[in-house]
């Protein structure tokens, strides 16, 4: 593989959660996450609420500073070999809450034009660019450009947010549940827009969602996260057809199906995920795993290679592993 456009190396982020001194507690939001993104691909990221997807996204775009680990852009360490400001224009983010991510006192034109002016573009050029981008995402700039966030619908606002990210001419866009809050029909339109833009501009996406169907539709590769760690990562087809981690299997089994013969009969996963302040010893998933056996509670599993680019962090795969 050539140099990945964006890569995460052993990212760790723990948040303080009360206590003092030695008794200080930490929420282990992201624990030793590494992966690589090839230029032009879309990596889907799935997992339950609270599994660290959003924290991982914010680490990736450097909105949060990792406790340890690095983000590399085209092989350069961000912040050391590549200045943060240069990185900012290459990697952008779209947030879940379309309303909260727009300044209520800014017109849509100004919101989109803000980014380019930060990077030295003149106000009139930035305004012109913002108009073209609004036009591109399907909003008539003469109708919507002068409006405020509360005067738009959720789907229209999310289009503006996409236009704002595009205004930097980025290479990578991290979409944190960007379509999750939208109605199904609007969600489909926005997804189509995202796929068109990917083709036109050769964009690379990190697509975070809890909707497995949507992730399957848009992604080339999928990463499954559980309690701040990567449970399984692999090409979308092999991961969906032959999941190698019991957690992935449980998630896929819980996927709603339109086929009455294959309807979900019982909840395959019981209970809530364990508290990330005090995660279980050994494999983090062993408290809820249906196929738990001896080593699970003793030792954390390594990433086992189960396919050419398919890895799963589960002891069940240690025998199957292809020795590289």
């Amino acid at each position: 593989m050539s140099t990945p456009i964006l890569s995460a190396h052993n990212l760790v982020k723990h948040f303080k959660a009360g206590g003092f001194g030695a008794a200080r507690k930490f929420v282990r939001a992201v624990n030793d996450v590494s992966f690589e993104l090839a230029s032009g691909e879309t990596l889907g990221v799935v997992g339950e609420s609270g599994c660290g997807k959003s924290t991982m996204a914010r680490l990736l775009v450097q909105l949060l500073t990792p406790d340890s680990g690095e983000v590399h852009y085209q092989g350069k360490v961000v912040g050391r070999e590549l200045p943060l400001k240069a990185f900012r224009s290459k990697v952008q983010m779209v947030f879940q809450d379309s309303f909260a991510s727009l300044n209520p006192r800014m017109t849509m034109i100004d919101a989109v034009a803000f980014g380019p002016t930060v990077h030295g573009m003149s106000r009139s050029d930035a305004t012109r660019k913002a108009q073209d981008l609004l036009d591109r995402v399907g909003l008539d700039p003469s109708r919507f450009g002068g409006r405020y966030a509360h005067e738009l619908s959720g789907g229209q606002r999310q289009r503006v947010n996409i236009a704002r990210a595009l205004a930097f001419d980025p290479q990578v866009i991290v979409l944190d549940e960007a379509v999750s809050a939208l109605d199904k029909s609007v969600e489909a339109q926005v997804l189509n827009l995202l796929m068109d833009l990917r083709r036109e501009r050769g964009l690379t996406y990190v697509f975070i969602s809890h909707d497995l169907n949507v992730v399957r539709h848009i992604s080339d590769r999928v990463m499954v996260m559980y309690l701040g760690e990567v449970a399984e990562i692999g090409p979308v087809e092999s991961l969906y057809s032959a999941p190698c981690h019991p957690y992935t299997q449980a998630l896929l089994a819980a996927m709603p199906s339109l086929d009455p013969d294959r309807r979900t009969m019982e909840a395959p996963l019981a209970g809530d995920p364990p508290n990330p302040i005090d995660p279980p010893q050994g494999c983090r998933f062993h408290t809820r795993c249906s196929r738990v056996f001896a080593p699970c509670s003793a030792q954390a599993p390594a990433q086992h290679k189960v396919g050419k680019t398919h890895f799963a962090a589960c002891h069940l795969n240690s025998a199957k592993e292809h020795v590289a």
């Binding site: 909105l63 983010m93 991510s101 803000f114």
Partner: peptide, 21 residues
């Protein structure tokens, strides 16, 4: 709020974010 995060992700300085957002 996320619009402040978005402004931070744009690479603007703190002073500029305070002034504009």
């Amino acid at each position: 709020l996320e619009y402040i995060e978005a402004a931070q992700a744009s690479g603007a300085s703190s002073l500029r974010i305070v002034r504009d957002h």
